[in-house]
Design a protein around this nucleic acid. Sequence first.
DNA 1: GCCGTTTTCGGCCCGACTGTTTTCAGTCG
Length: 584
Amino acid sequence: MPTNNEIAKILSETADILEIQGAIVFRVRAYRNAARVIENMTDKLSDIVARNPDELNSIRTIGKTLHDKIIEFCETGKVEEFDKLKESLPPGLLEMLKIQSFGPKRVKLVYNKLGIDSVNKLEEAASEGKIRVLPGMGEKSETKILKSIRDFRTLQTDRKPWAEAEEILQNYLGYITKIDGIHHIQPAGSFRRCRESVGDLDILVTCNENAGGIIQHFAEYPEVLEILAQGETKSSVVLKSKIQVDLRVVKPESFGAAMQYFTGSKEHNVALRALAKDKNMKLSEYGVFQNDESIAGKSEEEVYNAIGLDWIPPEIRENRGEIEKAKNHTLPNLISLDKIKGDLHCHTTHTDGSASLPEMAAAAKKLGYEYIAITDHSKAVTIAHGLSAERLLDEIMEIDKFRGQNPGIYIFKGIEVDIMADGSLDLDDEILSKLDFAIAAIHSRFGMNSDEMTERIVRAIQNPYVRCVAHPTGRLIGERIPYEMDISKIISAAKENDVALEINSSPHRLDMNESFTFQAREAGVPICINTDSHSPDGFLNMRYGINIARRAWCTEDNIVNSWSLGKLKSWFKPPKEVVQCELF
DNA sequence: GCCGTTTTCGGCCCGACTGTTTTCAGTCG
């Protein structure tokens, strides 16, 4: 059965094709809206279809036509009309849409006038000066196209975002475990290490004796596109979703050693084996051996302990100093989802959220949170119906009233205030002073050079009411590269001014990324893990941000929203002391 | 293509930015 992402993808590609063909914008938008809603749903659409297709009718943005198409896709694995649409266009045209500043009109223009039907041909034509003769195009357009194509290529990757890999994996595990005889089944590899993206999936299984049957069953999964290898204890397949999955069947007494071995990373394992050798031991996927005798292997703890180490959490097995710490019993106590006490970035129907303030508060309370901050958009983000000072005052009043009536969860008064091109904010200090805190963010003018962008963000950090910078680099995974900026200067300005940097947990952003977070934590910058939720379901994305934070060695001390309500209240108390930073 | 106290037709988030143009089309969020 297709995943939500796969259904969303087919709808969104239909929208792309219709757009190039010149369909009316609202029809195109209907497909896009549905794709977005489906992508963000927590319930699996294919489950709903299997249970009761009529339930689809209650989902916003899915009407009669899309209802039928989704059922067709779930039942037959394809949508006839989509296949026809796809055949009507050269395949390269859709790829060209991914080039920044290249939309459907321009794709159509270069295709009709110059026969350009691929990114490669577009690049060739642009570098030969053939684009500038077209109406509405000029020399600058060509330069821009060439730069956009370079950016596009750096974003191209075979790896899947972790969240997408997780969905594929969960479905596969659900299928595999239907066969009898499996003792343990666990994912390993970079997925278990929670890397931001995953190249292939590794699954480990222990069983009684039916190894052959399990391997056979594994390869018969209906989503398998190609079987690469199939032996007695190992099979590799490629799924229709274009990801390779390896299954290994191991003996129970070796399960821990195999988990350790196949979880990696390679660098971590090389260092571990060297350490074992120093102690006259041998470490392999079958266990720890001394004089050819197995002394450990059943569990990972046993394996690590046998070579004199504490067990190391998978997320930090990258040979970045964790082995030394495990030796000295000084490994960090990594942050985890259960330590999170609230979410400090979310939206309501006051701007572009889909749920009211009480609904968002109720959803947060249900998760066991002690507090949340409501941070709707400010006026510059017109598309989100951003708040003017007057409308923000209304929201503040609503929060005051809500606080009085709902002792179970504390609502911080916040705003996601926009950083203008010059680093000023689009709301003045007078209104900001009425809030608990402001979280500053960029939503426009992404193309500034590094010096300008760095100065812009540092100026915002130096505003007395700003306590956090949201999605600091602006990257959208697979879609937009991060802004040019000097990360070390941002980090030191944040540190000097005691301003937090955000890990935005949206699976499309994951911004800051792991390396930025690592540097920020080492510098002692407070870190928020927020979801930027626009609906109650959005809160569930927190775990993706947790993955990043754990990989960056963050502990409770580092993570602002694991602090107690009291500690947070006293930290917020605006205005803060501003430290001017020397930039250049 | 979706949706509905404006309800089965006629609306649908809309302003900023860019690069091309002399007033605007295309793209983006």
